[in-house]
Amino acid sequence: MYQAGGDELKPDPGVRFTTEPADLVALEGEPALLPCAAAAARAVRLSWRHSARGVLTRDHTITISDLYRRQLANGSLVIEKMSASLAGQYQCVAAVDGVGTIVSKTATVFLAELPTIAPGPRWVSGPAGGALLLACAVSAPPRLALRIQPAAEPPDRRVYGAARLQHQPPTLLLNVTWLRNGAPVVLEAGRVAVSGSGALELDPLRPRDAATYRCRVSLARRPHHYVTGPELEVRVEAEAGSEQPPRFVATPRELTVLEGSSVTFDCAAVGSPKPEMTWLNNGVEIDLSDLDSRFYRWGCGSLRVQSARALDAGAYTCRAHSRLDSADHTALLHVQVTSRGP
């Protein structure tokens, strides 16, 4: 196929996408936008397909009479009010008369739903003056990344060059708050904070912290739509009066995340003298002083892995050590790599 170009004929480049839709998460009742644009030497007609499940075909074409979705003049698709029936797979279709038809990469639209909270211990204890970490074991829905708000962790570091992922996973935004004897916990800078996993850190632990705690998880911008975790009793022991070897009061758990997601391994230990906390990846100590690294420590001993890659999968060991002894606890990180083919 050729097109006229001055005094000579040039090969027709056909049709190509300049913008393709990406996976996204939308709250029920709120709008969502799926962008699409294509270029060709001739006029391009854009249309959309949707299927709640299964392979997309021309039988899944969204018509102009659709009551819940509207195609903009630039070809992008707007979901007016998100609902469960509008979730699923979407494709943009570009057609040019005399040239052909192409379909975009498949984008999945997820309805934001509350995650589950795994059960944990019924009580935890630690000495006054030490650190204590209360886990909120939030499990991400399949194929979604989680971001906890408000977390006291520093903002994610910028990633440049080859380390930067071109495709970021769809992210479910959650608010995590904690209740103490049924009333909201008041966060205190430098002592009471919520981590990127939703855990509550008390450092240093004080006698008045003895109480019953529960974490509450809600969808972002939907504070009245929440799920509450099981009760967890905190017992405060007398401050250590003699030397004691390191003892874990919180340990990391096995995690599975999508490539590009950030994740926090919770870990805390007590002892006298106060133990130092280090982390190992597959037996090799991680340099947590490198400011350009995607790995950094949070709080009293937790590890943050920013924008996880497939090569980050493996065994992560939290090590608490002092001149008296050392203690290790290892958990696995699984990184799922998803392809975005048509």
Rank of each mutant, 00 (worst) to 15 (best):
M1N: 13
Y2K: 09
K10R: 13
D12Q: 02
G14W: 00
T18L: 01
T18I: 07
T19Y: 02
V25R: 01
V25H: 02
A26R: 03
L27E: 12
E28G: 11
A32F: 05
P35A: 11
C36P: 05
A39P: 03
A40R: 01
A43E: 15
R45V: 12
R45P: 04
W48L: 00
R53P: 01
T57H: 01
H60W: 03
T63W: 01
D66M: 00
L67A: 15
Q71V: 13
Q71K: 11
A73T: 13
A73Y: 04
S76N: 02
L77D: 00
E80Y: 02
K81W: 04
M82N: 10
A84Q: 14
S85V: 13
L86Y: 08
G88F: 06
Y90V: 00
Q91Y: 03
T101G: 05
T101N: 08
T106S: 11
A107F: 00
T108K: 13
E113I: 06
E113C: 04
P115Y: 09
A118W: 03
V124N: 04
G129M: 05
G130N: 06
A135W: 01
V138R: 07
S139I: 13
A140G: 11
A140C: 05
P142E: 12
I148C: 05
Q149D: 10
E153I: 10
P155E: 03
V159C: 00
V159Y: 04
R164H: 09
L165E: 07
L165D: 10
L173G: 12
N175C: 00
N175D: 15
T177G: 13
W178D: 10
A183E: 14
E188S: 08
A199H: 05
E201H: 03
L205P: 07
R206I: 12
R208Q: 14
A210S: 14
A210C: 06
R214I: 05
R214H: 10
C215H: 05
R216S: 12
R216V: 15
V217G: 10
R221S: 14
P230Y: 02
P230K: 02
V234D: 01
V236F: 00
P245S: 10
P252E: 10
R253D: 12
E254T: 15
L255R: 15
L258N: 14
E259G: 11
E259D: 05
G260T: 04
G260C: 05
S262D: 08
F265A: 01
C267S: 15
A268K: 01
S272K: 15
P275W: 09
P275R: 09
M277C: 12
N281P: 02
G283Q: 03
V284E: 13
E285M: 12
L288F: 10
D290W: 01
L291N: 11
L291H: 07
D292V: 04
F295L: 14
Y296K: 07
R297K: 14
C300K: 02
G301H: 03
L303E: 04
S307T: 08
A310N: 09
D312S: 11
A315Y: 08
T317C: 12
T317E: 12
C318A: 15
C318V: 00
R319Q: 13
R323Q: 11
S326D: 12
A327S: 14
H329N: 14
V337N: 02
S339Y: 08
